[in-house]
Design a protein around this nucleic acid. Structure first.
Lengths: 190, 190
DNA sequence: TGTAAAATAGTCAAATTTGAATATAATAAT
DNA sequence: ATTATTATATTCAAATTTGACTATTTTACA
């Protein structure tokens, strides 16, 4: 799972406590492209410690704050990281867009309501793409090309989704979603 | 969750036993765009029955096969279906490509190995897209436009991913993934 | 004729994910 | 001065997912 990859990857740079991992991810806008809920973070930390891929270095208490438990990656952890990196690169996990399931049953819903919901979806995706475009521009001088590539991937996949949903929405507005035997017109109007 | 939507959606067409739901999904190639492992299917059935969205109609035993428990959707179930359909259409669940996490830590891996893994990924995606293109062509005369739209979405998102990964791979081969401050060249070479 | 594979139908323990709850301190706002 | 919000830091129960296992029948095939 990517959670472990991220934890080990960030610990490769230096010792950290779990909350700090979460912070670093935000600073580097990783939370925009990697999912890591807190529950999963602490759970994964426990698992990694059990398997001795990481170990506790010290527990610090500043002021009256809760204790911070600082972890360090072990030699076995570094090997595990390489394994996980390859696994992540070769993962053939399929991703299912929630709208696939929705569209599969669209005939049982109200076309105009569907058109409206698609419009909102498109706006959300557009907002996400524009946000990532800004982040991309800001990061050009600072980050490596591979990170820029990754961001550009998010942008272009988002753009493809918008084009796609725009066609579906037009059809919904025209009340043609349920028509059978009519091939789609895919001429690019953009 | 989409599992419940699918179960209720298929039961809207008529009574079925769990295994039959699984079969119908395969016949309609839904397994290509909706994830529904068996464990989750039976779990969801139990949950839906608890909440009385579906009820047992009869248990049949043919020959010496295991019993088939046949379910029917209730009136409350039909209402729940409409609720779930809207929820699915308005879901803003973000989808995280496994390669995002992989690329975020690519600097800690071997560039040539990464290029090779990206090549394999691209081939897998290409195979998926070509498979869906065939399914699309075959289904044109039989299914509603909304289903064609959905399939075309899968195809076009896949194509966008291939173009994206092709650029990343070129950079990996050129050993440029870790370079900082170099904007990407996005001129379309296709 | 034997035997391997695929289809039928479902169960279950274990791993994981989710999201809310806990507790305190610092900062901002009215 | 008081209230609200954000930040720090973690825990936990409950819901869900996974994937392997059970058991039988039918079909393919050598």
């Amino acid at each position: 799972m990517s959670v472990r990859l991220v934890i080990l990857g960030l610990l490769m740079e230096g010792d950290k406590h779990p909350y700090e991992i979460s912070q670093v991810m935000k600073e580097r806008v990783m939370d925009h492209y990697i999912k890591l809920p807190k529950g999963s973070l602490y759970y994964a930390i426990t698992q990694l410690e059990k398997k001795e891929y990481i170990k506790v270095i010290e527990t610090v208490r500043e002021c009256n704050r809760p204790e911070k438990t600082i972890y360090r990656i072990t030699e076995a952890g570094r090997e595990e990281f390489q394994r996980l990196l390859i696994q992540q690169f070769t993962s053939s996990e399929r991703r299912y867009h929630p709208l696939y399931a929705a569209l599969a049953f669209a005939k049982l819903g109200d076309p105009l309501q569907i058109a409206e919901m698609l419009r909102i979806q498109m706006e959300e995706i557009k907002a996400g793409v524009e946000g990532m475009e800004r982040i991309y521009e800001e990061h050009i001088p600072q980050v490596s090309r591979v990170i820029l590539h990754m961001m550009m991937g998010i942008i272009e996949i988002g753009r493809a989704e918008i084009k796609w949903l725009d066609r579906v929405r037009e059809d919904a507005l025209a009340g043609q979603l349920s028509e059978v035997g009519e091939p789609l017109d895919l001429t690019d109007k953009a």
